[in-house]
Amino acid sequence: MRRRAQKKLAVWKFASCDGCQLSLLDCEDELLTLARRIKFANFMEASSAVVRGPYDLSIVEGSITTPSDAERILDVRRRSKFLVTIGACATSGGIQALRNFADVKEFISIVYARPEYIETLTKSTGIADHVHVDYELRGCPVNKHQLLEVIVAFLVGRRPNIPAESVCVQCKERGTTCISVAQGVPCMGPVTQSGCGAICPAYGRGCYGCFGPKEKANVDALVADWRLHKSVSEDQTRRLLHTFNAWAEPFRSAGSSPGVEHIGKDLRD
């Protein structure tokens, strides 16, 4: 039996914390098996030995925040046959997209001693705002089992089993009593895509929305219920919606009213 040429995998990093690509290294039990099926051709976090492209599968972590990154992602796309983004940063700009609601120049003047050294874009955006993306894997960070599923599905040429349903489905699957209904806790679960395994509600905390909005997320209806039945203030609502996926619609606009001038104020005060 002749072995077909091994497919080449590349992992790229943009503005991010590295947590998502770390999920790949975190696949300890499966990593060596996977390495026999796909060549880790460019994965700096694992090895400095780089094999030249083009690459069959590129995994992209992080958001675009600088002019040079906006250029670099075009090059990555050109060298990739199939491009998958991983994590909230790459999908929707990440937590750093909180800057999108405020004046970046002001931040820079507060944070850096020599602001003139800083070259940055006014907004942090997801990869799909810049190049064509073949598949987006959600999460902050991504779930390593889902990451493995995407790679394995790619290798056999099938659609990955990544449901677009709400976190509620996973709560019910693991037998968690709904904390919104049974305890009155404001929870993002009903408008958030599943994938994490519904961890937070199992420990009595409302969902933080790490996996971003589910398809057809009706955030306005959820917010209306928070106001009416759970005494959640406008400020709390904004804080709940504007976290890791703040720039993803409809979290973005539902959390934006009535303005988010306060973001950055804490820094100034």
Binding site: E165, S166, C168, V169, K172, C178, G189, P190, V191, K214, K216, A217, N218, D220, A221, L222, A224
Partner: peptide, 13 residues
């Protein structure tokens, strides 16, 4: 439809 979250809780329970 303006109120429904399409979260599927009703069908799950």
């Amino acid at each position: 439809a303006t109120r429904c979250l399409s979260c599927a809780n009703c069908t799950l329970v």
